[in-house]
Computed example of a mutant assay.
Amino acid sequence: MTRRPLYDAVTRSMAAELYDKGHGVKSISNQIGVPYEAVRQWINTYRSVGIEGLAGMGKRSAVYSFETKVAAGKAGKPTREQELERRVEMLEAENAYLKKSIALKAEKRSRTARRRSS
């Protein structure tokens, strides 16, 4: 299996800059000498998460020592109270979402009714 070449953040940022100037993916690919598919993926990432996300692509995950992992594992399971607080927060968020959804549907029905009566 052949390894794909990795490109640095400067190259990815250059692609984003050219994209902002109105260049298409194929043009950017030709100008910076990077395969089309790589540039296409960069531009999609740039459009969805911005320059910070694009610059952070390809970074390796942090490596933790055994001692650090053991210390983190000792935090243990959440208490019953913490579990219930988390559940309440989730239910409150779900409730707010449903209320917003109902309000948006009512607003849409109201607009449709006004158009029909005009």
Rank of each mutant, 00 (worst) to 15 (best):
T2Y: 02
R3K: 15
D8F: 03
D8L: 03
A9E: 08
R12G: 08
A16V: 05
E17Y: 09
G22S: 08
H23N: 15
K26N: 08
S27R: 12
I28D: 00
I28L: 08
I28V: 11
N30R: 15
Q31P: 03
Q31A: 15
G33L: 09
P35G: 11
E37G: 10
V39S: 06
V39G: 06
Q41P: 00
W42M: 04
W42V: 09
N44L: 12
N44E: 12
T45P: 05
Y46K: 04
R47D: 10
R47L: 13
V49E: 08
G50E: 04
I51V: 14
E52I: 01
E52G: 07
E52D: 11
G53W: 03
L54C: 04
L54M: 06
L54Y: 00
A55V: 09
M57H: 02
M57T: 11
K59R: 15
A62T: 10
A62F: 07
V63A: 14
F66H: 08
F66C: 05
F66E: 13
E67A: 13
T68G: 02
K69F: 00
K69R: 09
K69H: 01
A71C: 05
A71L: 03
A72C: 06
K74A: 05
A75F: 06
P78M: 11
T79H: 03
T79Q: 03
R80H: 06
R80Q: 09
Q82W: 07
Q82T: 02
E83Y: 11
L84W: 12
E85M: 13
E89M: 10
M90C: 05
L91M: 14
E94Q: 15
N95K: 15
N95G: 04
A96R: 09
A96H: 03
Y97V: 00
L98C: 01
I102G: 00
I102K: 06
L104E: 15
E107M: 09
K108D: 09
R109I: 02
R109Y: 13
S110A: 14
R111W: 11
A113I: 09
R114A: 15
R115V: 06
R116N: 14
R116H: 13
S117L: 02
